[in-house]
């Protein structure tokens, strides 16, 4: 592998990593709040992408309006899932997990008759390419970095500067104490579902013009996001960012040198070893 190829694959790796981060954010947020892994995250990512397909491409709304609408719609869906699935199960981690798996299967299977079986596409929103350190990157990919950044900052402000955010942090630290202080745990859990789902939808809406759309499109990003949040530590947002960048680099450099499968295998072996060394990931706190 030449030095030039190494630099190029590193640049590609960072662009892939920023996509992964976006997917991992909502997942890690929901884990921090409720200690559940949202297995439906990939399916919501898919729905976010199809929302863009219809609202922006088919019905001609402006892209950013469609983007916000996708986040709102799927945020509402998240709230609904909390009400109708999470709350009746009363927070049991394992049944919730299985229920979310069932929901995922349902959404994916229903996707084929509803959206059609052929792969769909959304025309590019940003056109053109830029030369970054000797490798051509499309502008639509470069745009992920500021948008992902804006979402991270927005999430940070929401959690740290608003009353609802304070309530979320209180629940994250101690659910019973928060309830005694008058925090409505149900409402805040609903909110965490809404924000988590909205972030998954944002990731899907952002990826729709870059990749292709099909009902199974969320599976691979979900597996990647799992790796990232374990790597970074479940519940940690800085961890998710670092994990995303590390995984993007591994995926790109190893895949360029050896091929995609060894890269994927390496990432799994890497997290198995990491967890055995540090059972809560790089930034995670003990359960």
């Amino acid at each position: 592998m030449t030095a030039a190829l190494l630099v190029q694959s590193a640049v590609i790796g960072l662009s892939i990593g920023s996509i992964y981060i976006l997917m991992a954010l909502g997942l890690t947020l929901m884990f921090g709040m409720m200690h559940i892994i949202n297995f439906a995250h990939g399916a919501v990512y898919m729905l976010g992408a199809f929302a863009i397909y219809y609202v922006y491409f088919q019905w001609g709304a402006p892209y950013f309006a469609a983007f916000v609408l996708a986040m709102l719609l799927l945020g509402a869906f998240g709230y609904l899932v909390e009400r109708s699935i999470y709350r009746p199960i009363k927070g049991g981690v394992e049944p919730t997990l299985v229920a979310l798996l069932a929901l995922t299967t349902l959404l994916q299977a229903a996707g084929y008759p509803v959206f059609g079986t052929l792969d769909k596409h959304v025309p590019p929103v940003f056109s053109g390419t830029r030369n970054v350190l000797g490798v051509m990157i499309s502008v639509e990919r470069l745009m992920i970095i500021p948008i992902a950044g804006a979402l991270v900052v927005g999430l940070y402000l929401f959690i740290n500067k608003t009353r609802m955010g304070a309530a979320m942090r209180a629940i994250e630290q101690d659910k019973e104490a928060a309830a005694l202080q008058g925090v409505n745990v149900n409402v805040i859990n609903g909110l965490a579902f809404a924000v988590g789902f909205a972030l998954a939808a944002a990731a899907g809406a952002l990826m729709a013009p870059i990749f292709k759309l099909d009902p199974m499109m969320g599976e691979q990003p979900l597996l990647k996001a799992f790796i990232i949040i374990i790597l970074g530590g479940l519940g940690s947002i800085p961890g998710a960012i670092l994990g995303g960048l590390i995984l993007g680099l591994i995926d790109s450099i190893v895949a360029t040198a050896l091929g995609a499968e060894p890269a994927f295998l390496l990432s799994f072996v890497f997290i198995i070893l990491l967890l055995l060394w540090r059972p809560t990931g790089l930034f995670g706190h003990a359960l």
Binding site: H35, I37, L97, I227, L234, I271, I272, L275
Partner: peptide, 14 residues
């Protein structure tokens, strides 16, 4: 808990 679950998932893929 979930960390154990995730290691088993990673192992399946590996």
């Amino acid at each position: 808990g979930v960390y154990f679950a995730m290691v088993t998932v990673a192992f399946v893929e590996a």
